[in-house]
């Protein structure tokens, strides 16, 4: 991949988001939960950039930050060289960055007809006038491979796959440049998810979109993505091109992730039974309640840990086109 030649779309620089948590109402000690901690990466135009990680690693918070749905604690996000600020009307970023949510059952307004759902973002952004809404949404539905008759239906009349198509059509109605896909197929059935993936790939080619693809399914990553970004405990563990990642990841956590896929090969499942023993005692590490946490986030579960990792925090180091957050890659 000659990523160097492509213009960069998204440049995230030392971004952090901390949440405060209170033990109880009368407990004034506050815990800081570092949901996203000192994260930096770049997304280039036309790429599919995938973020992988287990539940609670901060990948959804990161997508919220990109969309401006929560405020950042520190750090900067640049979109094509400009600081990401949704309040500036001049940039009109809502038109350029859109999201497809995970659950198609809860992300559509059940009281509105499909054409209203699909056309509302376009009307608000003054792409079309209100009287053209019907015509426009018919055209949008055609783009995502749905019948035109669906414009008069309500969301409850549609199946899961059709709803996910509707939410994709809604996101595309403002002609965005960057699409954040927050686990778009994990709520869907096998054959339906194949349809949606095909649709996403078609749209990516046709409209020259850039995707930030958030998932926990590495099978999809291998199939779709250009770059893999592995997150754990709010930090980036490894960023590498897809081919190199699947040939042999450098970070110990990426190796664990890769081993845990139940691919089409016989595998002794029983070896994973003990995974829990560690998990129970260190359940907080996932969420990143960081009191004594000076060292590496992954220290307690790591297979390659050394004394150095307890007190020193590794940084994301460049190693060719692979970036690894480990002292001993």
């Amino acid at each position: 991949m000659n990523t160097g030649k492509k213009p960069e779309v998204l440049n995230i620089n030392k971004l952090s988001k901390y949440y405060l948590s209170y033990g109880s109402l009368f407990n004034f000690k506050r815990n800081i939960i570092k949901a996203v901690d000192n994260v930096s990466f770049k997304v280039y135009k036309g790429d599919i950039f995938s973020i992988v990680g287990e539940t609670g690693c901060g990948k959804s918070t990161l997508s919220k930050l990109i969309l401006g749905l929560t405020n950042r604690t520190s750090g900067e996000i640049f979109y094509k060289g400009n600081i990401l600020n949704y309040n500036l009307k001049k940039l009109n970023l809502r038109k350029k960055i859109q999201i497809v949510f995970q659950d198609p059952y809860s992300s559509l307004n059940p009281k509105k007809k499909i054409y209203k759902i699909v056309s509302l973002p376009a009307i608000k952004n003054k792409i079309i006038k209100k009287k053209d809404a019907l015509q426009y949404s018919m055209q949008m539905l055609k783009n995502v491979g749905l019948d035109e008759d669906y414009v008069f239906k309500f969301p409850h009349e549609l199946s899961g796959g059709q709803r996910q198509r509707i939410s994709i059509a809604r996101s595309l109605s403002v002609n965005p440049e960057l699409l954040v896909l927050d686990e778009p197929v994990s709520a869907l059935d096998v054959s339906v998810s194949a349809q949606i993936l095909n649709l996403l790939l078609d749209l990516h080619e046709k409209n020259n979109l850039t995707y930030v693809f958030i998932t926990h399914d590495l099978r999809l990553v291998r199939h779709m993505a250009d770059t893999v970004c592995v997150m754990y405990g709010g930090k980036i563990m490894e960023i590498s091109p897809v081919d190199k990642f699947f040939d042999g990841p450098l970070h110990p956590y990426s190796k664990v992730l890769l081993e845990s896929i139940l691919a089409y090969g016989p595998k002794n499942i029983l070896q994973f039974a003990d995974a829990g023993n560690i998990n129970i005692n260190n359940i907080n590490i996932n969420a990143g309640t960081g009191k004594n946490r000076r060292g590496c986030v992954y220290y307690n579960l790591c297979s390659r840990r050394m004394d150095k990792c307890i007190n020193n925090e590794p940084d994301l180091k460049e190693n060719g086109d692979v970036q690894v957050n480990c002292f001993f890659p």
Binding site: T55, H216, D217, V256, L257, S260, F272, A275, G276
Partner: peptide, 11 residues
């Protein structure tokens, strides 16, 4: 999740 589901299967 991926890892927890593996553990449940293993159990």
């Amino acid at each position: 999740d991926v890892k927890t589901s593996l553990q449940v299967l293993a159990l």
